[in-house]
């Protein structure tokens, strides 16, 4: 899970759904696991859009199409280009586990829901916010050529559409950037830099 992230150059899976909520990313019935097994959650990623109720792949869905169905590995499908307001709804981190478990390292969108965005970062998947125009052009490039590559460079905070050469700067705070580049999580930081906490209040009632 703690995978260092520096520069990714890869083809993309376009998931052009606006307001794609975390119930779609992983339906509630897949939340019953007590582990973070990447295979279990990766298999459940976008499950109900990928499969019919009797488990048959839905051919029309983008992840089942010939150009996009190859499972992510180095340089291939490590990036999702998503519709706006990606990850709205439920706080389930299982959605981020599903994305990471499937093998995706970066999600690019024009906007993310707040809780899901934090969850992605905590699972070492980089959320990249781009302008709607840049996002639209990415969709167009990928549609024209599914082999279109995108480069995401974390040190310089730059995302480049290699089909057109257009690049955009993206925001991330230095702290989280350092964590991602070095594979460190927030607990490691908090335990080392606990600071001065207020005293614990006495417990009222309940006994």
């Amino acid at each position: 899970m703690k995978q260092k992230l520096d520069q990714i150059t890869s083809t993309c899976i376009p998931i052009a759904i606006d307001n794609c909520n975390t119930d779609l990313i992983i339906p509630a019935r897949y939340l019953s696991s007590t582990t973070r097994d990447p295979k279990f959650f990766g298999d459940a990623f976008m499950h109900d859009l990928r499969y019919t109720t009797d488990g048959q792949p839905i051919k029309d869905f983008v992840m089942n199409q010939t150009e996009y169905k190859e499972a992510p590995h180095e340089g291939v499908h490590e990036i999702i280009v998503a519709g706006e307001n990606w990850g709205s709804g439920s706080s389930r981190e299982h959605a981020a586990w599903a994305i990471a478990g499937y093998g995706v390292r970066v999600v690019i969108s024009s906007s993310f829901a707040d809780i899901h965005r934090n969850n992605l970062l905590n699972c070492f998947v980089l959320p990249v916010v781009v302008s709607p125009a840049f996002q639209q052009e990415l969709f167009a490039s990928i549609s024209a050529d599914p082999q279109t590559q995108v480069r995401v460079d974390l040190p310089t905070q730059t995302v480049t559409n290699l089909a057109t050469g257009k690049a955009e700067h993206f925001d991330i705070n230095n702290y989280k950037k350092y964590c991602l580049m070095n594979g460190l999580d927030d607990i490691d930081f908090l335990l080392k830099n606990i600071g001065t906490l207020p005293p614990a209040p006495p417990l009222q009632g309940g006994e």
């Binding site: 706080s91 809780i115 934090n118 905590n122 999580d185 607990i187 908090l190 606990i194 906490l197």
Partner: peptide, 19 residues
């Protein structure tokens, strides 16, 4: 609302890192 990694942060430190 928070994610599970953040639940672990609070369990461990009674704090959370937030923008």
């Amino acid at each position: 609302g928070i994610g599970t990694s953040e639940v672990a942060q609070v369990l461990a430190s009674q704090c959370i890192l937030q923008q």
